[in-house]
Design a protein around this nucleic acid. Sequence first.
RNA 1: GGUCCCAUGGUCAAGAGGUUAAGACGAGACCCUCUCAAGGUCUAAUCUCGGGUUCGAUUCCCGAUGGGAUCACCA
Length: 556
Amino acid sequence: MVTNKQLADLIFPNVTETVADLEKRYPPRDLPSGAEVTRFAPSPTGFLHTGSLFTSMICRKVASQSKGVFYIRLEDTDTKREIAGSGEQLLKQLNIFDVNPDEGYLGNSEKGNYGPYVQSKRADIYCIVIKHLLEEGKAYPCFCTSEQLEELRAEQEKQKLNPGYYGEFAKCRNLTNEEKYEKIKNGEKFVIRFKSNGNHESKIKVTDLVRGEFEIAENDQDIVIYKSDGLPTYHFAHAVDDHFMRTTTVIRGEEWVASLPIHVELFAALGWKAPHYAHLPVIMKIDEETGNKRKLSKRKDQEAAVSYFIEDGYLPKSLIMYLMTIANSNFEEWILNNKFEGMEDFVFSFNKMNNEGALFDMGKLNFFARELLVKYNKEEITQLAESYAKEYNQKLYKTIQSNRAYFADIMNIDREKANPRKDYEKFGNVLDIIGFFYEEGYQKALQEPLPFNEKFAKEDLVEALTAIKEKLQVNQDEQIWFNDLKEIGASLGYAANNKEYKANPEAFKGNMGDLAEILRITLTGRKNAPNLCTVMYLLGLEETHRRIDAVISLLK
RNA sequence: GGUCCCAUGGUCAAGAGGUUAAGACGAGACCCUCUCAAGGUCUAAUCUCGGGUUCGAUUCCCGAUGGGAUCACCA
């Protein structure tokens, strides 16, 4: 007769510690009442996903506002999918968004008394708990091969039964201890399964901080908790880690709702109190092919990777701000009332969260991004652009370096005034906007046909430009400058007074708008630009004349 | 397909058994104006459908439809 204990000893001969020892090693946290312990638990399988940023941002917020703890745990139990270095990468990107852990995995090191915070280093802990389950007869080794499991699945599908390893289909469940003992002795490969007592026909009530209370079928699957590679599966690691790390609130993606019954049963079998759960909606996007909503996909959507926003020169805070509007429906009004400042004072609450996945709205992100960028003064915005460019945009960096003061002046156009321009939402496209200030961008514009108004003959254009070149001075004062231009215009037959022009357009060559447009196109190559007085001032008289000459010769 | 969740303008959404059904982004118009941006004023645009309960339903209930999530020795 082989007892559970003997079987457990055979499987884990070196495990001597007990669950009680673990309880002692990881005592309840000493925190003020109401403090929440949250965690972000990524797998090191790639770069930070926008949805993960969303989740971790909320974890950070919930812990902070309750004076609790937010920690990071690396879930690296899937050795096949692991990408080297991505754990560090994740951490670095979180840091860019100011989502920093209080404890846990920190790359090369870790901090806190509830570690290790990397699952692959916790094998001994999982084994202690599994051994305990084995001894209690709540888990058992399973020797089924993947082929056998596939066959089983195929058969179940044929019979339209729920697929999986449960009830009568859980063959290894019925093996006697002697048989199990024998197989293990013979070196047969095995996994360890949790023995479920659940009934798929009955329902359990679960409570979710976002979704409220709802019913869901009990788990009846004998899920794998210990893989043949000696590492635990997610479900088991979740129960063990979040128990011993004393997590109070598990905040994770909606994709986990379906496995909640497993987790509930696991916690109950272990005799532990389950944490609170908050399952967050997924951020979506309309699929161009099907027209349906779908999860933001790293492969298809650039905005699924936070690196996209970083590399395109968005202020990290603007993404966070936008994400917060998805997180809490009352945030947007709040932040508007607070003039886009003091986000950390906003009180997040789960019941202000919609449990439907929102469509990612680039337009709204851009709105926040512009509002944020407009707050910086000349030196700050230049500094920001410079440090972005240095790391992510060499072309912009060279442009800035060629004449930093000039770049600063350009960025400062109509900036330090009551109603500043809001030209930029990110630094990735500033060169598209201000390129004409530079020789390269200007030359590029000259390659295209210049968009002069067709009502003017070439001779008119040359005449106007010649007069401007002769008489118009650079001036910082917009009024003086514009009066000068008016005078020139009047002498050429352009109406200085628009009402007069409108009353009798035939009497004039055009109005001041027409004349200004001729100059504008000449200096910038385009019909839209910041006010011409400033453009001319920044370009300088010499460059202005050079450009006028260039266009005149182009016209001839 | 089974199970769970969800359904208000283009998007994010507030809302209550009786409302002129908020607000924000976006769009359009006008004003300002050397163009653009900004700013100001204004406009258009929403309760998926069918039953039931009720004096009255967009709101509560049921069903349909649609959408989302999930069904691994992945997390």
